[in-house]
Amino acid sequence: MDLENQSRIKALTEEHGAENLIVVFGAAEGELTGLAAETVTVGDPTYAGSLTNVELGLGVYHAVEPTFKEAVDPQVYEDQIGMMEMVLDVDDIVGEITTIREENSKYNK
């Protein structure tokens, strides 16, 4: 994940508390989703950013997950994400993010 984004997430978690935060990703592939989700739960797997060895344990979701989709306005979802739901490999992404959330998220799962 982008180094600047890691720093921002770290600071925001300190400010608002991990229990109050949810991270939603829009990554194009399962693998990338997994890496990003890992970064904000157990730390940056690439050892490059400020979240290296930092276990934030944040709740992580991807925009194409059914649980997330159910929580938002269906028309807005259709307008904003409907097409990408058709384009992306939803099963792959849902598989990756669910595994990381179940194993590594400490909050909001």
Binding site: A28, E29, E31, L32, L35, M83, M86, V87
Partner: peptide, 13 residues
């Protein structure tokens, strides 16, 4: 790099 096939995603859109 786990970032998908960009042209293919565009064609699918």
């Amino acid at each position: 790099a786990g970032a998908g096939d960009v042209p293919l995603a565009n064609y699918k859109m």
